[in-house]
Design a protein around this nucleic acid. Structure first.
Lengths: 221, 221
DNA sequence: TGTACATCAGTGAACGCGCGTTCACTGATGTAC
DNA sequence: TGTACATCAGTGAACGCGCGTTCACTGATGTAC
């Protein structure tokens, strides 16, 4: 899996807005716009992705974007796709850190790692996380529900399968298990992000997460 | 528990915007504004609560609202409070429909009823549901996390306690159980409301919900 | 009982804001002959 | 190798929009004397 940065930080893109472009043509405006928009989303969520500001930061007139995107929604969809990729990377990164060893135990830990990564990403990148789920239709088949093989959803499914294989998840409880896990971490993140649990101290929140992961394990096993 | 309608549809409030007010003074403008704002939230979510539109619908000049609310946020907070009340009502209504009988079985059913009511409310009143969780600070101690005795959160806690008492929930799994249940239904709702599972057919969605409630029960018991 | 007056609840005009999108344009690029 | 020309990628000005909020005001109400 190539890191998003390969896509975004294209070498043809000058260090946006620091120096004016030398040439009339930008070189890779589309990618530069998506990058600027992503930064805005990180800072202020989907509503922060303002076309004119994106153009300003990219050092380009405010309607140049219309050469590359039909409208603001299409750009936002692109940002959502980037967000989804980063979420997946975060999950894979955490998975990679799970020590091997007893296979069943490792599978168990991997399921927890996926859940923690999800919550961690949501709390660490709230703007991007919100943008991913802001209802903008996915730009290019990035719909996690429709891409079973990879993407966050597919990754979760794989880890669940592992856990069935190693006896951690009962086969009869496997159907629908994605939704169970996903809903739990998604709701946990939402409640602590903007919801009524936003004021809960981090330590207490982390403890609550571990308890929740315990219950999920027990509910599936 | 008095229904919200008592608060909102005050008899002193004329049938807003159909006929012009007879008197210069409105009579109960505050309540009328909250009502109009609630309708806008129902229709279009928190962003739909536009001060000038609220005033228009109430048949009053667009800045009359400033006699009753410091700013738009305060009005929005009021709407969120109404939403929280309606959510609680929805839960209580579903609880009331659970047949008595075997006490342990009834408690089990009551826990499921609470969860179903939550999801049902979220999917049935998406705009209001979103407004409740839109991050506007609760208007008057309506913060569900801070009101353990009643409110949706308190209600859930009571039902969980019942289930401990009847042996459906293991006492050592009681701590943090509110968050587990809440996160699950909250996330389930979010994923199916605006999230990537929005396109899932209702029938399949309902089946997934039942499966999730099964897993929660098994995780706690 | 009447009246002056403070207080409250509305009004109407205006300010300043920044947005998304469209239009007719111009500069740069690459390619066919 | 040079040149005409189509095509593409940007520009700058303008449109239309509606918002939240503030200002100085006026009409209505209730109360003290």
């Amino acid at each position: 899996m190539s890191p998003v940065s390969t896509l975004i930080y294209d070498e043809r893109v000058p260090p946006a807005s620091t120096t004016p472009r030398a040439t009339y043509h930008h070189g890779n405006l589309r990618a530069a716009l998506v990058e600027a928009a992503t930064e805005l989303a990180r800072a202020s969520g989907p509503d922060g992705v303002v076309l004119r500001e994106v153009a300003r930061r990219t050092g380009v007139s405010h309607n140049a974007a219309y050469r590359h995107f039909a409208d603001r929604d299409e750009l936002l969809g692109e940002v959502a796709a980037v967000g989804g990729q980063r979420l997946e990377e975060a999950m894979r990164a955490r998975l990679a850190r799970v020590r091997a060893g007893d296979a069943a135990e490792a599978a168990r830990r991997r399921l927890r790692a996926v859940g923690r990564a999800y919550v961690e990403f949501a709390l660490g990148e709230p703007g991007l996380f919100e943008t991913v789920f802001s209802g903008a239709p996915p730009a290019d088949g990035q719909d996690p529900y429709r891409s079973p093989a990879d993407g966050p959803y597919g990754l979760l499914g794989q880890v669940l399968d592992e856990n069935v294989a190693h006896g951690n998840v009962r086969p009869d409880r496997r159907p629908g298990a994605e939704v169970v896990c996903w809903a739990a971490v998604h709701g946990f993140a939402g409640l602590h992000l903007r919801g009524p649990l936003a004021a809960v101290p981090a330590k207490e929140r982390d403890r609550a997460l571990e308890l929740m992961l315990d219950r999920i394990e027990q509910g599936l096993g």
